[in-house]
Design a protein around this nucleic acid. Sequence first.
DNA 1: ATGAAAGCGCTAACAC
DNA 2: GTGTTAGCGCTTTCAT
Lengths: 325, 325
Amino acid sequence: MREKAKLEDVAKLAGVSPTTVSRVLNNRGAISNKTRQKVNAAIQELNYHPNEIARSLFISKTNLIGLIFPTTAHPFYGEMVFHIEKILSEKNYKVLICNTMNQAQKENSYLNMLLANQVDGMIVGAHNIGIEFYQKANLPIVAIDRKVSETITVVSSDNYSGGRLATEEILNQGRTKIIHINSVRQEEAPSSYLRRQGYEDVMKEHGFPYKTYELELPFDTKGKKQILSDILNRHPDLEGMFVSDDLTAALALSMIRKQDKDIFVVGYDGTEAVTTCLPELTTIVQPIKAMAQLAVDLLLKEINSGFKDIQKNYILPVTVRRGEK
Amino acid sequence: MREKAKLEDVAKLAGVSPTTVSRVLNNRGAISNKTRQKVNAAIQELNYHPNEIARSLFISKTNLIGLIFPTTAHPFYGEMVFHIEKILSEKNYKVLICNTMNQAQKENSYLNMLLANQVDGMIVGAHNIGIEFYQKANLPIVAIDRKVSETITVVSSDNYSGGRLATEEILNQGRTKIIHINSVRQEEAPSSYLRRQGYEDVMKEHGFPYKTYELELPFDTKGKKQILSDILNRHPDLEGMFVSDDLTAALALSMIRKQDKDIFVVGYDGTEAVTTCLPELTTIVQPIKAMAQLAVDLLLKEINSGFKDIQKNYILPVTVRRGEK
DNA sequence: ATGAAAGCGCTAACAC
DNA sequence: GTGTTAGCGCTTTCAT
């Protein structure tokens, strides 16, 4: 295995100094055409690739962005990560991906790893360690759907309206016996709380009883099914369910079909993947692409402004996607 | 924004030499307990994080792995990337993610980016540029579902058997008028060709006519639907379809339902997400986690053996997942 | 238009 | 046990 060529090798082969090669590479300063050609020829011949690591070390900038999310295996995050990476790569940034699987310990060690690797910034959509860990990082960070904070910018979609819309969608079907299934409330994640609030407010306004299940949903399908089954049994006359995650909603839907019940299910997220698989599911659509775009824009602004206080909360609107008949 | 502490700052504060700090950090050599404590205290106080970039530069190893895939927005790749990252992170490797969106130009520039960033190796599941680009990289690489090559290890699942199984599954329903829908054949991607071969061989063996559509499927759902609709119209008496991608199969399924036809659809991939959304779909399940594990194992072996010739093709078995009634 | 030299933050000989 | 020194591959003053 031939050793990798370095800048010095190129310089020697081209008969110039390392400085000159560097100038050609970075298009800086004035270079004669003849020199440029010699250098380029040498680069070609040696199949030379500049060492970004060395470059990063010198300029104290890596163009590396860390992404911390629960798991790309979930379509919501898979699509979110896709959009973020796509937008960042167009601006010449590279993306380090971290799947925390909702484990605080992993999130913490990923955070330290990213700091050690000198990322220029981070986009965080995981919710398990205190915001103070991130504040200590002293780095441009944008959070997605996280707790409001004095120093970290948050991008989210309108979870409260989402909860309201979902509930109204069911009520519009003439159904009033409606429960809500949510993930367990996490201190740092207001989204589930807001969705719940939206649901409960609407029910209260109409004077209907409401019931929210905050579940610590297990990762495996079997466990989820068991829990859902118990809930269905407990509500034999149920007419509607607002389930704050499409995948769990899908599970509920298929159980309902099997039991030949008539329960109207509304889900949450509205990813491409789930919409393709389950076009009949009514769901609240989060603007994933727009959230990704905004998060990136804000992050790059922080990075380029020297991390000054443009911290704020941004809330993007959600929409209803009515299931196809 | 306080400047980042560096090793030298820690050394000064602790009243020792940089070397000693480095030794404490890396647990190398013999250090007195007292010194270790002083150093650790200084590290704490300064909130010091070792600069991995500088370290990488010196030791000529980044512990960085590049992942090149079409898009994490597709559940198959989303899940694949999740598993790969999870396994790699346990071995202290970091992951740079690249979404090529099936564009050769992007794939090529990602490849160069990864080389410039001194990745220790790559796992590639995209199929748009010639294998020779990768060979030039002169780096440990494992390909997933790519063309067989003399110098690059390939991990795939048994696409030929998958094609056969899918077809037999439909025949077992007593259906014989079966078509196959595949993505357009790409020179470097044998998987679609092998699935097609499996389908056609089984049909031939039974003496039934066969028809394969190799489609350049557009990215948008609308376009896909149009194409599928045309195909359905062309085959009014169709009894079965083998569609070599679950998402496209899901689209076909919902159209078939709407038209109230009786066509048995078998898909391909068997991801968690699609299985959850569409438990009634029969599909060929690729062993995503096992493929990820094997790909990582082989890659790390190449990296640690100094990239010697353990190149080979590994084919993992697929299974049938029968749709729930 | 080009080159010499210093240094980004770290580690590994090699001393003592 | 601990420190001194050189250097990983690059860029950038500061010369010329």
